[in-house]
Design a protein around this nucleic acid. Structure first.
Length: 417
RNA sequence: GUGGAAUUAGCUCAGUUGGUUAGAGUGCCAGGUUGUGGCCCUGGAGGUCACGAGUUCGAUUCUCGUAUUCCACCCCA
């Protein structure tokens, strides 16, 4: 029996948990300032939600879902992404009757059955935002701007933004046909995957890595040339907003996202520090999804960011995410004064300080070593004399300076020294 | 899902051309006398050498399988 954590899952030990907490705090705070409210949705949903929402042509639905049948015979799936569930909750919770736009953020774990690699896990976490109810390019620009602010506040740099427009269903169909017309005479030269993609989703043929397919893609027609008037205007609107926000971007006409629900704007934030899993964040517009999951027509735009990839990026850029919480005071004691020491520690903890005391039954010397090792700011030796006279010496560990003080005044000294 | 590499102490790694009780550094615990940390010294705990089979008198070492991780694809966050 293998008792290790299952493939693709990982433990987050205290040091890493503290760092992630910092990322979470920064993200939450940014979202709050941009006017987004938090949403939490179930970790599993009816399988059909993801099949309809994410799309049965997507790799996620075709081969990466953790699907199981519960004891009631329902087919359920651990969420492989957040948007479908959030969209479902938006409809089910009657949020479509709230004043538009409705702006939501989340921080949730996701599950995909994938082969492991650095930055790619079977259980992973995503920060995400969704804006419901606005068709305007300003909404697209706002979520991109939020991300840009987020990376900026973390001190991350060198993350490039790529954008594209894949059009609405109308102009996309025109483009699909143009693509098929281009590829049809060349189909026999192409790889097996692409022959499948030809019928299923010819857009995916564009970023095939097979050498020959890749060469053919270079001359293939580009979606941007097939945008209808309103989609073109929309894309121009997004770009001019990004310009106004002074956000650099690269238009990548070959970018295709893996989820079927996207319309018009798609974008990725890409880093070179995360190995081949360089996409830290991906998003776009999904104007048809709300109807797909049972609501009325409702435009929406959002993104999801891989928290583990963000961590790798922060680590690579040597961003200080903190992670250590040091005690203000270590109270050393003797067997006869161990109980009063515990009581004094409790008292100071209730005053808001971080205080450690010996729960190992160690010698004084060993307690001092322990205090040093955990890098406590101060120590106080609480012996019988100190207890009787209700005063003691507060010793600052970095320079050894000692201050005589009544025990009742320790809190004040910890604050000022 | 395809191809390749790796797996020895909590961590980073040596090592065994197949042969008694498997090593280092670091970390951890204790001690270096009676109430004071960092440096230093001494001692200790901790490994079924990833797991399971096979070959062999004998396997941590060779072979196969499995698991896990990593790399390149695929794909994505």
């Amino acid at each position: 029996m293998d008792l290790r954590a299952p493939r693709g899952t990982r433990d987050i030990l205290p040091e890493e948990a503290a760092k992630r907490q910092l990322l979470e705090r920064v993200f939450e705070d940014i979202c709050r300032r941009y006017g987004y409210g938090e949403i939490r949705v179930p970790a599993f949903e009816h399988t059909e939600l993801f099949v309809r929402g994410v799309g049965d042509a997507s790799d996620i639905v075709r081969k990466e879902m953790y699907t199981f049948e519960d004891k009631g015979g329902r087919s359920l799936t651990l969420r492989p992404e957040g948007t479908a569930g959030v969209a479902r909750a938006f409809v089910e919770g009657g949020m479509s009757s709230r004043p538009a736009p409705v702006k939501l953020w989340y921080n949730m774990n996701m599950f995909r059955y994938e082969k492991m690699q650095k930055g790619r896990y079977r259980e992973f976490w995503q920060f995400g935002c969704e804006v419901f109810g606005s068709e305007a390019p300003q909404a697209d620009a706002e979520v991109i701007g939020l991300l840009n602010s987020f990376f900026g506040e973390l001190g991350l740099s060198g993350i490039s933004l790529e954008i594209n427009s894949i059009g609405c269903p109308g102009c996309r169909e025109a483009y699909r046909e143009a693509l098929r017309d281009y590829y049809r005479p060349r189909l026999s030269e192409m790889c097996e995957d692409c022959q499948v993609r030809f019928d299923l989703n010819p857009l995916r043929m564009l970023d095939c890595k097979e050498e020959h397919c890749h060469l053919l893609a270079a001359d293939a027609p580009v979606q941007l040339d097939y945008l209808c008037g309103s989609c073109k205007d929309h894309f121009d609107g997004v770009k001019s907003c990004l310009d106004a926000l002074k956000i650099d971007y690269i238009v990548n006409p070959r970018m295709v996202r893996g989820l079927d629900y996207y319309t018009r704007t798609v974008f990725e934030f890409i880093s070179s520090n995360v190995g081949t899993q360089g996409t830290i964040c991906g998003g776009g517009r999904y104007d048809g999804l709300i109807r797909e999951v049972g609501g009325f027509d409702m435009p929406a735009v959002g993104f999801a960011m891989g928290v583990e990839r963000l961590m790798l990026e922060a680590e690579a850029q040597e961003i200080n995410l903190g992670g250590e919480s040091l005690p203000d005071l270590y109270i050393a004691s003797f067997p006869a004064t161990a109980a009063p020491a515990l009581a004094l520690a409790q008292d100071l903890i209730r005053q808001g300080f971080s205080v450690e005391t010996d729960i190992m039954g160690r010698s004084l010397r060993a307690q001092m070593k322990a205090a040093d090792r955990m890098r406590a700011r101060f120590t106080l030796v609480l012996g019988e004399t100190e207890v009787e006279e209700a005063k003691g010496k507060l010793r600052r560990l970095d320079d050894g300076e000692e201050t005589e003080t009544p025990l009742a005044a320790i809190g004040g000294l910890l604050e000022t020294k």
